[in-house]
């Protein structure tokens, strides 16, 4: 079975996971559901051959879980413990959403995404804006790396002795170059017909396959369990 998911399934996964992370797990059953939901994007990352990020997230999540359950409790005192409670709490609570979002952004091609938005009848304006945001992630990363490189070579990677400058030296060139690239990107796009009064079509044909339906079902069930056990029972 191909691990290639329909972008609509992926978006649904993000939606459900984001909702679930806002509800705290209180019983072993809810914890189990939550952990299972986190495992799915991790397995999908492996299936897409993104081993490094899968491994990184698994270790991070596992450490946070083990620390929370084995070593920390409400009676924990001391600075180290209270810091750990804070960090692990946040990690355990929100990592599932982060992992899912990472998986979706990294494995969805921009044109697939646009096509999915069209199929869901999202207005072109919104679809295009979101697509540009996705297009920007790798660009920001590239720009950031170039700027860090340039700072190292100027000998001001650590703010030239003033730590407060570290952020400023990085952020200002980054903002400027992103604004420039954004301008040029939109110029290139509108000279190729984007934003015309024509109904956009898409070359990507999307189909929800068995695997998509299974995942949608699983995530719906997970969300259902949370809602039922937290608010109804």
């Amino acid at each position: 079975m191909s691990a290639k998911l329909d972008p609509r399934t992926k978006l649904y996964m993000i939606l459900v996971v984001s909702a679930v992370v806002m509800m705290s797990a209180t019983t072993p059953l809810l914890w189990g559901v939550r952990i299972a939901m986190t495992m799915i994007p991790l397995i999908l990352l492996v299936a897409e051959k993104r081993y490094a990020s899968a491994l990184r997230f698994t270790i991070l999540y596992a450490i946070a879980l083990v620390l929370t359950f084995r070593f920390l409790s409400e009676e924990s005192t001391g600075i180290v413990e209270s810091l750990l409670i804070g960090y692990c709490g946040i990690a355990v609570q929100f990592l599932p959403a982060l992992i899912t979002a990472w998986y979706v952004v990294r494995t969805t091609k921009i044109d697939e995404f646009m096509s999915a938005m069209q199929r869901m009848h999202v207005p072109d304006g919104i679809a295009i804006s979101l697509a540009v945001v996705m297009r920007f992630f790798p660009t920001i990363k590239e720009e950031y790396a170039s700027i860090t490189d340039a700072m190292k070579m100027r000998g001001i990677a650590f703010g030239g002795g003033r730590p407060s400058k570290m952020v400023e030296y990085r952020m200002i060139p980054l903002l400027f170059s992103c604004v420039n690239i954004g301008d040029e990107l939109s110029a290139a796009a509108i000279t190729r017909g984007l934003g015309g009064k024509v109904k956009r079509t898409s070359v990507e044909e999307l189909h929800l396959r068995v695997f998509d339906w299974l995942l949608i079902l699983a995530f719906t069930a997970a969300a259902g369990i949370f809602v039922v056990f937290k608010y109804i029972l």
């Binding site: 297009r135 660009t139 690239i181 040029e184 190729r192």
Partner: peptide, 12 residues
Amino acid sequence: FQNPRSQFFTDN
């Protein structure tokens, strides 16, 4: 256009 970094709208 001139700049190869911003010429392309998609990544493929």
